[in-house]
Nucleic acid binder design. Sequence first.
DNA 1: ATGACGCTAGTGTAGCGA
Length: 265
Amino acid sequence: MPARKPLKVATFNINGVRTRLASLLAWLEREAPDIVCLQELKAPDEAFPVEPIRDAGYGAIWHGQRSWNGVAILARGADPLESRRGLPGDPKDTQSRYLEAAAHGLIVGCLYLPNGNPQPGPKFDYKLAWFDRFIEYAQGLVESEHPVVLAGDYNVVPTDEDIYNPRSWRKDALLQPESRARYADLLAQGWTDSLRQQFGEERVYTFWDYFRQHWERNSGLRIDHLLLNRALAPRLKEAGVDRWVRGLPHPSDHAPTWVSLARER
DNA sequence: ATGACGCTAGTGTAGCGA
């Protein structure tokens, strides 16, 4: 009986799905991820480029929004079965930041956690409130018997080992103790931070801002995370970052970040 | 401290988010 190819699950903050469509298609073609979580579509629902994505062999669901935010889930050779659109806990929150689906035997939560800058201020308050709602919701998923992955742009640099140099970022919302404490609280529920688990003490970045040649100098941050619940964590095989996508012309400031998982049985 | 991008309104360019 031949070994079955592992399942590749990726998250990619694309920073404009229309502007970055060619890069997205090139990446899907070359890396063939089985499940993709996209963030920052920056497009209303009717502008999501579903046809070229279907032509590339992917089923898709998306939760768009004009100008900002927006999340999508793609599944290779399958249609994601939507299980949630939007985070519970605040009916007045209209920002498109959470989408969840079943695909390829997994439950996949795709999130775009608020950036929170500038801090302090209302944007930072919203970030922390959103994070608190997310933690409360995630509690119900971590102990699920079903395999669950929570993948997305968390807008949190978990530790000083997850950034090239924290000095100039000390006042940034991504490094605040309140942000980091919440990420730690989330992990303490029992989630596995798959990139950190696989890389150990080795540095790994998923985001390089557009300023001051940070990409050329590998001055990066690790803010895109794939968290596995207890039912899924034993199946983790590999993790990585498709850095070549960040090196393409007119790139997103993030690179696709992924895990590979043993197929069930 | 600085500053790059995409998107919007709306045709030239500034504001917003990040």
